[in-house]
Design a protein around this nucleic acid. Structure first.
Lengths: 229, 229
DNA sequence: CGGAGCATTGAGACCGGTCAAAAACAGTGG
DNA sequence: CCACTGTTTTTGACCGGTCTCAATGCTCCG
């Protein structure tokens, strides 16, 4: 694997500060692979054999239980996933599948752990990464536990709106079924949620969303920096 | 602060592997304090000035939003809390209060971060701790997103039953109001949940719970090692 | 014995889920 | 360009779980 195959990898917070030899060693052991959409990459319950980095495309993390399925997160370039399982040499707690054609870097867990043991800068980078992931997770948990579905939707729309700054409208980055699963609601309910938010100036056409009066929606959503950041 | 004031601290996974000088430095900067019950230790939104370690007693982590309040976790001896906020030099995402008279060790964040930067073993210990906390958090999130309230209750009872191995009955470690909040339900609903579980051999008298037929309850609960561990 | 707080129970409302069907949409091949 | 097909989204009707509010019972303590 040639380093110039990997724009962005070395720049990732996770790999930026580690020393050159360690990085080379990691990349040497790694595989860069292309996957079509809807390929299962990992399955919850199986041992964490690889750390994954999404270079291109998109990966959906999800979990199944008792006939239900829920989306736990979407991973977009360039970032890694299931770091915690790799570090603890444990079993995956989430399944993962591509939602579009993707290029994925797979780094064997043993190599991650070996370098983690000897490269202090890498260990510190992992700390920072995990601490961040953990805080994101807490926020999602609070979001789910403290807010009704429609407020979760409103806040998600506001977040998307703010990311596509200035523009009056934006595109939903995934289909509505997936969005519903992320928000912890059914597609039917999401649909009704959109209908309700029309009264607050939200217009949905296909997957294009226009927010007429952001302040109005913001008031309804009860944004909270300790949940929405 | 004398080290022999602190049984268990040095044995914590977080501090076990760090070198003696670093540990002494940390303990030197730390405060060991006694608090009565119902004292607010930290408030969400404020900067993380200290890492906390519960030596004796119990601390409830909780969060408020829009007039609601929910319990995010209970910290019992001997373990630390809000490590992620300290590492990221960020704001607390949870509030914390004692639920009984407690002895708490408070270590200034700057000292944690300083030693984290220079002691590789400590950095690695933090990684392991955060990775574990993260996985516990994921499980809680899945629990909430994938299961109805009564199944969360059933599984929680089974977990408590298993912890008090062999014994036919056990005590709820907190009052029912708190248990309800942990489980993400109202006290009224918890009460009805207990009533429903009577049909599966669960008997509740005060805060003493007896499970007549564990297998029966287990079948109902749909235990899942990827949620309940 | 009385009061405070906690736990339980009941009634009603609401949010969210299920099921079924219609409508909108995208992609395909004629 | 248009029918055809399969998928996604929406809508409607209905049901169940959960919350709220209120009243009652219980227990612990002063």
């Amino acid at each position: 694997m040639r380093p110039n195959d990997l724009p962005g990898i070395r720049d990732l917070p996770l790999f930026r500060s580690m020393d050159e030899a360690s990085f080379a060693e990691l990349m040497n052991a790694a595989y860069l692979q292309k996957f079509p959409r809807q390929v299962d990459l990992i399955l919850e319950g199986e041992p964490a054999d690889f750390l994954y980095v999404v270079i291109e495309g998109c990966v959906e993390l999800f979990s199944r239980h008792a006939g239900r399925e829920t989306t736990l997160g979407m991973v977009v370039p360039v970032s890694s996933f299931i770091l915690a399982a790799v570090i603890r040499d444990a079993v995956y707690l989430m399944s993962g599948r591509t939602t579009e054609a993707s290029r994925i870097l797979m780094i064997p867990s043993e190599n991650i752990r070996a370098i983690f043991e000897k490269d202090g800068a890498f260990a510190r980078a992992i700390v920072r990464e995990l601490a961040l992931d953990f805080r994101v997770m807490i926020k999602e948990y609070k979001n789910l536990k403290l807010r009704p579905g429609i407020e979760r939707l409103a806040n998600r729309l506001l977040r998307l709106h703010d990311q596509n700054a200035a523009a009056g409208s934006f595109m939903l980055p995934y289909d509505k079924k997936t969005l519903a699963s992320i928000l912890g609601m059914t597609p039917e309910n999401l649909s009704r949620g959109f209908a309700t938010l029309r009264a607050y100036g939200v217009d949905v056409a296909g997957n294009t969303v226009t927010i007429a009066d952001v302040d109005d929606l913001r008031a309804f959503a009860k944004m909270n920096p300790l949940i929405d950041q």
